[in-house]
Nucleic acid binder design. Structure first.
Length: 439
RNA sequence: CGGAGUGUGGCUCAGUCUGGUAGAGCACCGCGUUCGGGACGCGGGGGUCGCAGGUUCGAAUCCUGCCACUCCGACCA
Protein backbone atom coordinates (compact mmCIF):
# COMPACT_ATOMS: atom_id res chain seq x y z
CA UNK A 1 0.00 0.00 0.00
CA UNK A 2 1.16 3.49 -0.83
CA UNK A 3 0.54 5.81 2.06
CA UNK A 4 -0.12 8.75 -0.27
CA UNK A 5 -3.20 6.88 -1.53
CA UNK A 6 -4.23 5.27 1.74
CA UNK A 7 -6.66 6.49 4.37
CA UNK A 8 -4.82 6.80 7.65
CA UNK A 9 -6.02 9.99 9.33
CA UNK A 10 -3.61 10.43 12.23
CA UNK A 11 -4.01 13.17 14.80
CA UNK A 12 -1.35 15.07 16.69
CA UNK A 13 -3.62 15.80 19.61
CA UNK A 14 -5.75 13.21 21.31
CA UNK A 15 -9.43 14.13 21.46
CA UNK A 16 -10.32 15.28 24.94
CA UNK A 17 -12.96 12.58 25.36
CA UNK A 18 -10.40 9.81 25.36
CA UNK A 19 -9.09 9.03 28.80
CA UNK A 20 -7.14 5.82 28.62
CA UNK A 21 -4.04 5.34 26.54
CA UNK A 22 -5.43 2.72 24.18
CA UNK A 23 -8.42 4.90 23.35
CA UNK A 24 -6.23 7.93 22.78
CA UNK A 25 -3.85 6.00 20.58
CA UNK A 26 -6.60 4.36 18.57
CA UNK A 27 -8.08 7.78 17.82
CA UNK A 28 -4.71 9.37 17.13
CA UNK A 29 -3.66 6.52 14.87
CA UNK A 30 -6.89 6.85 12.91
CA UNK A 31 -8.04 3.32 13.73
CA UNK A 32 -11.57 4.09 14.79
CA UNK A 33 -14.00 6.94 14.84
CA UNK A 34 -16.63 7.29 17.51
CA UNK A 35 -20.13 7.66 16.09
CA UNK A 36 -22.04 7.55 19.37
CA UNK A 37 -21.37 6.54 22.96
CA UNK A 38 -19.78 3.11 22.77
CA UNK A 39 -20.31 2.82 19.01
CA UNK A 40 -17.38 3.00 16.64
CA UNK A 41 -16.67 2.99 12.96
CA UNK A 42 -13.54 0.96 12.15
CA UNK A 43 -11.21 2.79 9.82
CA UNK A 44 -8.75 0.94 7.57
CA UNK A 45 -5.92 0.57 10.05
CA UNK A 46 -8.18 -0.51 12.89
CA UNK A 47 -10.02 -2.91 10.68
CA UNK A 48 -6.80 -4.58 9.59
CA UNK A 49 -5.82 -5.25 13.18
CA UNK A 50 -9.30 -6.40 14.10
CA UNK A 51 -9.31 -8.86 11.21
CA UNK A 52 -5.92 -10.25 12.16
CA UNK A 53 -6.99 -10.88 15.71
CA UNK A 54 -10.20 -12.41 14.46
CA UNK A 55 -8.25 -14.76 12.21
CA UNK A 56 -5.96 -15.91 14.99
CA UNK A 57 -8.95 -16.61 17.18
CA UNK A 58 -10.56 -18.53 14.32
CA UNK A 59 -7.48 -20.65 13.67
CA UNK A 60 -7.10 -21.61 17.30
CA UNK A 61 -10.78 -22.44 17.66
CA UNK A 62 -10.61 -24.63 14.57
CA UNK A 63 -7.53 -26.32 15.91
CA UNK A 64 -9.33 -27.13 19.13
CA UNK A 65 -12.13 -28.78 17.21
CA UNK A 66 -14.75 -26.04 17.21
CA UNK A 67 -16.76 -25.39 14.06
CA UNK A 68 -17.58 -21.93 12.80
CA UNK A 69 -21.09 -20.69 12.06
CA UNK A 70 -22.44 -17.19 11.57
CA UNK A 71 -25.46 -16.33 13.63
CA UNK A 72 -27.71 -13.33 13.02
CA UNK A 73 -27.34 -10.11 14.96
CA UNK A 74 -31.13 -9.86 15.21
CA UNK A 75 -32.88 -12.56 17.15
CA UNK A 76 -36.51 -13.35 17.83
CA UNK A 77 -37.65 -12.31 21.28
CA UNK A 78 -39.64 -15.53 21.56
CA UNK A 79 -36.42 -17.53 21.86
CA UNK A 80 -35.41 -15.39 24.78
CA UNK A 81 -38.81 -15.90 26.34
CA UNK A 82 -38.23 -19.66 26.14
CA UNK A 83 -35.03 -19.44 28.14
CA UNK A 84 -36.54 -16.93 30.52
CA UNK A 85 -33.92 -14.34 29.75
CA UNK A 86 -36.15 -11.91 27.86
CA UNK A 87 -37.24 -10.49 31.17
CA UNK A 88 -34.07 -11.24 33.12
CA UNK A 89 -31.60 -9.52 30.87
CA UNK A 90 -32.90 -6.04 31.56
CA UNK A 91 -32.19 -2.78 29.84
CA UNK A 92 -28.85 -3.97 28.58
CA UNK A 93 -30.66 -5.82 25.85
CA UNK A 94 -31.61 -3.67 22.89
CA UNK A 95 -35.18 -4.48 21.92
CA UNK A 96 -36.61 -3.68 18.52
CA UNK A 97 -39.90 -4.18 16.72
CA UNK A 98 -40.16 -5.08 13.06
CA UNK A 99 -42.92 -3.89 10.67
CA UNK A 100 -45.16 -6.72 11.80
CA UNK A 101 -44.86 -5.46 15.35
CA UNK A 102 -42.86 -8.55 16.25
CA UNK A 103 -40.35 -8.24 19.09
CA UNK A 104 -36.72 -8.69 18.16
CA UNK A 105 -33.53 -8.20 20.06
CA UNK A 106 -30.09 -7.20 18.86
CA UNK A 107 -28.24 -10.17 20.30
CA UNK A 108 -26.05 -9.52 23.33
CA UNK A 109 -24.98 -13.19 23.15
CA UNK A 110 -26.29 -16.25 21.38
CA UNK A 111 -27.02 -19.15 23.73
CA UNK A 112 -30.67 -19.15 22.68
CA UNK A 113 -30.06 -19.08 18.94
CA UNK A 114 -27.41 -21.76 19.01
CA UNK A 115 -29.51 -23.96 21.26
CA UNK A 116 -32.41 -23.59 18.85
CA UNK A 117 -30.18 -24.65 15.97
CA UNK A 118 -28.70 -27.53 17.89
CA UNK A 119 -32.04 -28.98 18.94
CA UNK A 120 -33.35 -28.79 15.38
CA UNK A 121 -30.67 -31.10 14.02
CA UNK A 122 -28.92 -33.06 16.73
CA UNK A 123 -30.92 -35.90 18.21
CA UNK A 124 -28.45 -38.57 19.26
CA UNK A 125 -25.67 -38.83 21.78
CA UNK A 126 -23.65 -40.33 18.91
CA UNK A 127 -23.43 -36.88 17.35
CA UNK A 128 -21.79 -35.43 20.44
CA UNK A 129 -19.66 -33.67 21.35
CA UNK A 130 -20.25 -30.57 19.26
CA UNK A 131 -18.73 -27.14 19.63
CA UNK A 132 -20.06 -24.37 17.42
CA UNK A 133 -18.65 -20.90 17.39
CA UNK A 134 -19.50 -17.55 15.93
CA UNK A 135 -17.56 -14.33 15.42
CA UNK A 136 -20.20 -11.68 15.24
CA UNK A 137 -21.10 -8.20 16.44
CA UNK A 138 -22.96 -8.10 19.70
CA UNK A 139 -24.88 -5.28 21.25
CA UNK A 140 -25.19 -4.56 24.94
CA UNK A 141 -26.81 -1.30 25.85
CA UNK A 142 -24.36 -0.58 28.65
CA UNK A 143 -25.38 1.93 31.26
CA UNK A 144 -22.01 3.47 30.88
CA UNK A 145 -19.93 2.66 27.85
CA UNK A 146 -16.36 3.85 28.30
CA UNK A 147 -12.71 3.49 27.43
CA UNK A 148 -13.28 3.39 23.69
CA UNK A 149 -13.70 -0.07 22.23
CA UNK A 150 -12.72 -1.56 25.57
CA UNK A 151 -16.31 -1.26 26.69
CA UNK A 152 -18.39 -0.40 23.70
CA UNK A 153 -22.05 -1.06 23.31
CA UNK A 154 -21.45 -2.71 19.96
CA UNK A 155 -18.49 -5.07 19.99
CA UNK A 156 -17.08 -8.03 18.10
CA UNK A 157 -17.14 -11.21 20.12
CA UNK A 158 -16.16 -14.76 19.41
CA UNK A 159 -18.64 -16.95 21.21
CA UNK A 160 -18.41 -20.71 21.23
CA UNK A 161 -20.98 -23.16 22.55
CA UNK A 162 -20.30 -26.75 23.50
CA UNK A 163 -22.82 -29.56 23.67
CA UNK A 164 -22.11 -32.77 25.57
CA UNK A 165 -23.93 -35.81 26.89
CA UNK A 166 -22.97 -35.31 30.51
CA UNK A 167 -20.89 -33.26 32.86
CA UNK A 168 -17.76 -35.36 32.48
CA UNK A 169 -17.84 -34.97 28.72
CA UNK A 170 -18.61 -31.26 29.06
CA UNK A 171 -15.54 -30.89 31.19
CA UNK A 172 -13.43 -32.18 28.31
CA UNK A 173 -14.95 -29.58 26.03
CA UNK A 174 -14.25 -26.99 28.66
CA UNK A 175 -10.64 -28.09 28.89
CA UNK A 176 -10.14 -27.76 25.16
CA UNK A 177 -11.38 -24.19 25.26
CA UNK A 178 -9.32 -23.41 28.34
CA UNK A 179 -6.12 -24.40 26.56
CA UNK A 180 -7.13 -22.95 23.19
CA UNK A 181 -7.64 -19.60 24.89
CA UNK A 182 -4.13 -19.65 26.29
CA UNK A 183 -2.82 -20.35 22.81
CA UNK A 184 -4.81 -17.47 21.35
CA UNK A 185 -3.39 -14.93 23.76
CA UNK A 186 0.13 -16.25 23.33
CA UNK A 187 -0.12 -15.85 19.57
CA UNK A 188 -1.30 -12.30 20.08
CA UNK A 189 1.88 -11.58 21.98
CA UNK A 190 0.10 -11.30 25.32
CA UNK A 191 0.69 -12.72 28.74
CA UNK A 192 -2.61 -14.09 29.95
CA UNK A 193 -3.63 -15.77 33.14
CA UNK A 194 -6.74 -17.84 33.77
CA UNK A 195 -8.55 -16.78 36.90
CA UNK A 196 -11.41 -18.57 38.62
CA UNK A 197 -14.50 -16.53 38.05
CA UNK A 198 -17.86 -15.98 39.56
CA UNK A 199 -20.16 -17.63 37.02
CA UNK A 200 -22.62 -14.79 37.60
CA UNK A 201 -26.10 -14.62 36.12
CA UNK A 202 -25.29 -17.13 33.40
CA UNK A 203 -25.05 -19.77 36.11
CA UNK A 204 -23.03 -22.94 36.41
CA UNK A 205 -20.18 -23.93 38.65
CA UNK A 206 -17.11 -24.04 36.41
CA UNK A 207 -15.88 -20.75 35.05
CA UNK A 208 -12.65 -18.94 34.29
CA UNK A 209 -11.83 -15.46 33.18
CA UNK A 210 -8.72 -14.79 31.13
CA UNK A 211 -6.88 -11.67 32.06
CA UNK A 212 -4.08 -10.19 30.01
CA UNK A 213 -1.44 -8.32 31.89
CA UNK A 214 -1.14 -4.59 31.24
CA UNK A 215 0.08 -1.94 33.63
CA UNK A 216 -2.88 0.22 32.82
CA UNK A 217 -5.41 -2.62 33.22
CA UNK A 218 -8.62 -1.89 35.06
CA UNK A 219 -8.60 -4.81 37.46
CA UNK A 220 -6.02 -6.10 39.87
CA UNK A 221 -4.96 -9.73 39.80
CA UNK A 222 -3.12 -11.86 42.31
CA UNK A 223 -1.48 -15.00 40.99
CA UNK A 224 1.20 -17.59 41.37
CA UNK A 225 4.13 -16.43 39.26
CA UNK A 226 4.54 -19.85 37.66
CA UNK A 227 1.25 -19.35 35.91
CA UNK A 228 2.78 -16.67 33.72
CA UNK A 229 6.04 -18.49 33.21
CA UNK A 230 4.29 -21.70 32.24
CA UNK A 231 2.56 -19.91 29.38
CA UNK A 232 0.45 -21.55 26.73
CA UNK A 233 0.48 -25.28 25.98
CA UNK A 234 1.15 -24.68 22.28
CA UNK A 235 -0.70 -25.93 19.23
CA UNK A 236 0.72 -29.44 19.13
CA UNK A 237 -0.97 -30.99 22.10
CA UNK A 238 -3.29 -33.95 21.55
CA UNK A 239 -6.62 -32.14 21.39
CA UNK A 240 -8.51 -35.42 21.46
CA UNK A 241 -6.50 -36.82 24.32
CA UNK A 242 -6.69 -36.26 28.05
CA UNK A 243 -6.16 -32.54 28.60
CA UNK A 244 -6.99 -32.63 32.28
CA UNK A 245 -3.34 -32.67 33.46
CA UNK A 246 -2.48 -29.59 31.38
CA UNK A 247 -5.49 -27.75 32.70
CA UNK A 248 -5.03 -28.82 36.29
CA UNK A 249 -1.39 -27.85 36.19
CA UNK A 250 -2.56 -24.30 35.60
CA UNK A 251 -5.98 -24.12 37.19
CA UNK A 252 -4.66 -25.45 40.49
CA UNK A 253 -2.29 -22.52 40.91
CA UNK A 254 -3.65 -19.58 42.82
CA UNK A 255 -5.06 -16.80 40.64
CA UNK A 256 -7.77 -14.34 41.53
CA UNK A 257 -9.02 -10.94 40.52
CA UNK A 258 -9.60 -8.36 43.22
CA UNK A 259 -13.24 -9.24 43.90
CA UNK A 260 -12.50 -12.95 44.37
CA UNK A 261 -9.15 -12.46 46.07
CA UNK A 262 -8.51 -14.16 49.40
CA UNK A 263 -5.33 -12.75 50.91
CA UNK A 264 -5.02 -15.51 53.49
CA UNK A 265 -5.24 -18.24 50.88
CA UNK A 266 -2.85 -16.36 48.60
CA UNK A 267 -0.22 -16.28 51.32
CA UNK A 268 -0.82 -19.88 52.34
CA UNK A 269 -0.72 -21.34 48.82
CA UNK A 270 1.91 -19.23 47.12
CA UNK A 271 5.49 -19.02 48.36
CA UNK A 272 6.60 -15.48 49.01
CA UNK A 273 8.92 -15.18 46.02
CA UNK A 274 6.19 -16.34 43.67
CA UNK A 275 3.43 -13.99 44.72
CA UNK A 276 2.54 -11.84 41.77
CA UNK A 277 0.32 -8.80 41.92
CA UNK A 278 -0.44 -7.16 38.62
CA UNK A 279 -3.02 -5.24 36.69
CA UNK A 280 -4.92 -6.70 33.81
CA UNK A 281 -7.80 -6.63 31.41
CA UNK A 282 -10.41 -9.33 31.06
CA UNK A 283 -10.47 -10.52 27.48
CA UNK A 284 -12.11 -13.91 27.74
CA UNK A 285 -14.56 -15.81 29.86
CA UNK A 286 -15.51 -19.46 29.77
CA UNK A 287 -18.44 -21.15 31.51
CA UNK A 288 -19.86 -24.55 32.04
CA UNK A 289 -23.55 -24.13 32.72
CA UNK A 290 -24.97 -27.65 32.44
CA UNK A 291 -28.64 -27.80 31.56
CA UNK A 292 -29.40 -24.12 32.04
CA UNK A 293 -30.55 -23.60 28.47
CA UNK A 294 -31.05 -27.15 27.25
CA UNK A 295 -33.71 -27.88 29.83
CA UNK A 296 -36.08 -24.96 29.29
CA UNK A 297 -35.43 -24.95 25.56
CA UNK A 298 -35.67 -28.73 25.27
CA UNK A 299 -32.36 -29.38 23.60
CA UNK A 300 -32.51 -33.12 24.17
CA UNK A 301 -30.55 -36.01 22.76
CA UNK A 302 -31.31 -39.68 23.00
CA UNK A 303 -28.75 -41.50 25.10
CA UNK A 304 -27.46 -45.06 24.82
CA UNK A 305 -30.23 -46.11 27.17
CA UNK A 306 -32.85 -44.91 24.68
CA UNK A 307 -33.96 -42.08 26.91
CA UNK A 308 -33.95 -38.38 26.04
CA UNK A 309 -31.91 -36.06 28.23
CA UNK A 310 -30.94 -32.39 28.06
CA UNK A 311 -27.42 -31.77 26.89
CA UNK A 312 -24.74 -30.22 29.08
CA UNK A 313 -23.61 -26.93 27.71
CA UNK A 314 -20.84 -24.44 28.03
CA UNK A 315 -20.13 -21.10 26.45
CA UNK A 316 -16.83 -19.45 25.73
CA UNK A 317 -16.33 -15.81 24.85
CA UNK A 318 -13.42 -13.78 23.56
CA UNK A 319 -13.78 -10.03 23.20
CA UNK A 320 -12.19 -9.60 19.79
CA UNK A 321 -12.67 -5.83 19.47
CA UNK A 322 -11.68 -5.37 23.10
CA UNK A 323 -8.44 -7.20 22.37
CA UNK A 324 -7.44 -4.46 19.93
CA UNK A 325 -7.45 -2.02 22.83
CA UNK A 326 -6.07 -4.61 25.23
CA UNK A 327 -3.02 -5.23 23.08
CA UNK A 328 -2.34 -1.50 22.92
CA UNK A 329 -2.65 -1.19 26.68
CA UNK A 330 -0.11 -3.99 27.01
CA UNK A 331 2.21 -2.71 24.30
CA UNK A 332 2.86 0.99 23.75
CA UNK A 333 5.31 3.73 24.65
CA UNK A 334 5.36 7.51 24.63
CA UNK A 335 5.60 7.62 20.85
CA UNK A 336 2.59 5.39 20.24
CA UNK A 337 1.51 1.83 19.63
CA UNK A 338 3.93 -1.10 19.39
CA UNK A 339 2.11 -3.85 17.53
CA UNK A 340 3.20 -7.44 18.02
CA UNK A 341 4.17 -8.75 14.58
CA UNK A 342 1.22 -11.13 14.46
CA UNK A 343 -1.41 -8.39 14.48
CA UNK A 344 0.40 -5.40 13.01
CA UNK A 345 -1.65 -3.66 10.30
CA UNK A 346 1.43 -3.58 8.08
CA UNK A 347 4.60 -5.57 8.53
CA UNK A 348 7.09 -2.92 7.44
CA UNK A 349 6.99 0.74 6.57
CA UNK A 350 9.31 1.64 3.73
CA UNK A 351 10.08 5.28 4.44
CA UNK A 352 11.05 7.26 1.39
CA UNK A 353 12.70 10.32 2.86
CA UNK A 354 12.83 12.19 -0.43
CA UNK A 355 9.98 11.33 -2.75
CA UNK A 356 10.70 12.74 -6.16
CA UNK A 357 14.44 12.14 -6.02
CA UNK A 358 14.82 9.50 -8.69
CA UNK A 359 17.55 7.39 -7.06
CA UNK A 360 15.77 7.38 -3.72
CA UNK A 361 12.44 6.53 -5.32
CA UNK A 362 14.07 3.65 -7.16
CA UNK A 363 15.51 2.06 -4.03
CA UNK A 364 12.28 2.58 -2.09
CA UNK A 365 10.31 0.95 -4.87
CA UNK A 366 12.74 -1.92 -5.02
CA UNK A 367 12.47 -2.47 -1.27
CA UNK A 368 8.71 -2.22 -1.40
CA UNK A 369 8.37 -4.80 -4.17
CA UNK A 370 10.79 -7.17 -2.49
CA UNK A 371 8.87 -6.97 0.77
CA UNK A 372 5.62 -7.57 -1.04
CA UNK A 373 7.21 -10.65 -2.54
CA UNK A 374 8.17 -11.79 0.94
CA UNK A 375 4.56 -11.41 2.08
CA UNK A 376 5.51 -8.76 4.61
CA UNK A 377 2.64 -6.40 3.81
CA UNK A 378 4.76 -3.30 3.35
CA UNK A 379 3.45 0.23 3.58
CA UNK A 380 5.32 2.67 1.34
CA UNK A 381 5.53 6.09 2.93
CA UNK A 382 5.74 8.18 -0.21
CA UNK A 383 4.12 11.23 1.35
CA UNK A 384 5.58 14.59 0.46
CA UNK A 385 6.39 15.40 4.04
CA UNK A 386 9.37 16.05 6.20
CA UNK A 387 11.23 13.10 7.70
CA UNK A 388 10.31 13.96 11.25
CA UNK A 389 6.63 14.00 10.47
CA UNK A 390 6.90 10.60 8.82
CA UNK A 391 8.79 9.03 11.68
CA UNK A 392 6.38 10.44 14.21
CA UNK A 393 3.28 9.15 12.49
CA UNK A 394 4.80 5.73 11.74
CA UNK A 395 5.92 5.38 15.33
CA UNK A 396 2.43 6.37 16.38
CA UNK A 397 0.68 3.71 14.33
CA UNK A 398 3.18 1.15 15.52
CA UNK A 399 4.40 -0.65 12.43
CA UNK A 400 7.02 -3.17 13.62
CA UNK A 401 9.80 -2.23 11.20
CA UNK A 402 10.79 0.99 9.48
CA UNK A 403 13.03 0.58 6.47
CA UNK A 404 14.34 4.06 5.88
CA UNK A 405 15.53 5.05 2.44
CA UNK A 406 17.19 8.46 2.20
CA UNK A 407 19.55 10.28 -0.13
CA UNK A 408 22.60 9.83 2.09
CA UNK A 409 22.17 6.11 2.39
CA UNK A 410 21.31 5.63 -1.25
CA UNK A 411 24.56 7.35 -2.21
CA UNK A 412 26.44 4.90 -0.01
CA UNK A 413 24.35 1.89 -1.00
CA UNK A 414 22.71 1.48 2.40
CA UNK A 415 19.36 1.82 4.12
CA UNK A 416 18.50 2.20 7.77
CA UNK A 417 16.43 -0.45 9.50
CA UNK A 418 14.63 0.44 12.69
CA UNK A 419 12.76 -1.90 15.02
CA UNK A 420 9.77 -0.12 16.51
CA UNK A 421 9.64 -2.14 19.72
CA UNK A 422 13.22 -1.57 20.82
CA UNK A 423 14.17 1.54 18.86
CA UNK A 424 17.21 -0.37 17.69
CA UNK A 425 18.61 0.89 14.36
CA UNK A 426 21.15 -0.48 11.98
CA UNK A 427 22.57 0.80 8.74
CA UNK A 428 23.14 -1.88 6.16
CA UNK A 429 22.73 -2.73 2.48
CA UNK A 430 19.16 -3.28 1.32
CA UNK A 431 19.65 -7.01 0.75
CA UNK A 432 20.85 -7.46 4.29
CA UNK A 433 17.96 -5.42 5.66
CA UNK A 434 15.49 -7.55 3.76
CA UNK A 435 17.07 -10.66 5.24
CA UNK A 436 16.68 -9.30 8.75
CA UNK A 437 13.02 -8.53 8.15
CA UNK A 438 12.42 -11.89 6.52
CA UNK A 439 13.67 -13.40 9.77
C1' C B 1 -29.42 4.66 37.13
C1' G B 2 -27.18 8.14 41.33
C1' G B 3 -23.18 11.99 41.49
C1' A B 4 -19.87 15.49 38.78
C1' G B 5 -18.62 17.98 34.32
C1' U B 6 -18.33 19.50 29.12
C1' G B 7 -20.63 21.02 24.29
C1' U B 8 -17.21 27.25 20.05
C1' G B 9 -14.21 25.03 12.03
C1' G B 10 -11.43 18.06 11.36
C1' C B 11 -8.26 18.11 16.41
C1' U B 12 -6.56 20.96 20.98
C1' C B 13 -8.44 25.18 23.25
C1' A B 14 -9.35 30.84 24.40
C1' G B 15 -13.59 34.04 24.52
C1' U B 16 -18.98 33.19 28.68
C1' C B 17 -18.08 35.80 35.09
C1' U B 18 -18.81 41.71 33.22
C1' G B 19 -24.04 40.91 26.34
C1' G B 20 -21.80 44.82 21.30
C1' U B 21 -22.07 40.75 15.84
C1' A B 22 -16.16 34.88 16.76
C1' G B 23 -10.30 34.03 17.73
C1' A B 24 -5.35 31.17 18.31
C1' G B 25 -2.33 26.70 17.46
C1' C B 26 -2.43 22.21 14.67
C1' A B 27 -4.71 20.30 10.16
C1' C B 28 -6.34 21.96 4.95
C1' C B 29 -5.48 25.02 -0.09
C1' G B 30 -1.80 28.33 -3.09
C1' C B 31 3.29 30.30 -3.69
C1' G B 32 8.28 30.29 -2.04
C1' U B 33 12.36 28.65 1.02
C1' U B 34 13.29 23.94 3.23
C1' C B 35 13.96 18.52 3.99
C1' G B 36 17.67 12.13 8.62
C1' G B 37 12.85 12.89 14.22
C1' G B 38 5.85 16.30 13.89
C1' A B 39 9.97 23.24 9.50
C1' C B 40 9.45 28.57 8.23
C1' G B 41 7.42 32.97 5.58
C1' C B 42 3.44 35.22 2.84
C1' G B 43 -1.52 34.65 1.12
C1' G B 44 -6.26 31.87 1.52
C1' G B 45 -10.72 28.63 2.62
C1' G B 46 -13.72 26.64 6.39
C1' G B 47 -17.74 27.84 12.27
C1' U B 48 -26.33 29.37 11.91
C1' C B 49 -20.80 28.95 18.95
C1' G B 50 -25.21 21.22 20.60
C1' C B 51 -30.83 22.15 19.73
C1' A B 52 -35.39 24.87 20.82
C1' G B 53 -37.69 28.71 23.18
C1' G B 54 -37.23 33.30 26.09
C1' U B 55 -35.08 38.23 27.92
C1' U B 56 -32.77 42.41 25.22
C1' C B 57 -31.95 47.59 20.50
C1' G B 58 -28.40 43.54 20.41
C1' A B 59 -27.00 36.73 22.92
C1' A B 60 -21.36 32.09 22.07
C1' U B 61 -22.13 35.08 26.61
C1' C B 62 -28.13 35.90 30.67
C1' C B 63 -32.85 32.60 31.71
C1' U B 64 -35.86 27.95 30.78
C1' G B 65 -36.34 23.25 28.60
C1' C B 66 -34.28 19.39 25.79
C1' C B 67 -30.27 16.58 23.50
C1' A B 68 -25.38 14.68 23.16
C1' C B 69 -20.77 13.36 25.13
C1' U B 70 -17.11 12.49 29.17
C1' C B 71 -15.68 11.18 34.14
C1' C B 72 -16.67 8.74 39.31
C1' G B 73 -19.90 4.80 41.44
C1' A B 74 -23.00 -0.01 41.13
C1' C B 75 -22.73 -4.15 36.59
C1' C B 76 -20.03 -6.44 32.19
C1' A B 77 -16.45 -9.75 26.30
Amino acid sequence: MRLSRYFMPTLRDAPADAQIVSHQLMLRAGMVRQEAAGIYAWLPLGLKVLKKIEQIVREEMDRAGAIEVLLPTLQLADLWRESGRYDDYGDEMLRIKDRHDRDLVYGPTAEEVITEIFRAYIKSYKDLPKNLYNIQWKFRDERRPRFGVMRGREFLMKDAYSFDIDEAAARKSYNRMFLAYLNIYARLGLKAIPVKADPGPIGGDLSHEFIILAETGESEVFAHGDLVEMGAPGPDIDWDGDLEPLVTQRASLYAASDEMHDAARFEAEVPEGKRMTARGIEVGHIFYFGEKYSKPMKALVTGPDGKDAPIHGGSYGVGVSRLVAGIIEASHDDAGIIWPDAVAPFGVAVVNLRPGAAEVDAVAEQAYKALEGLGKEPLLDDRDDRPGAKFASLDLVGIPWQLIVGPKGVAEGTVELKRRATGERQILPLDAALKVIAG
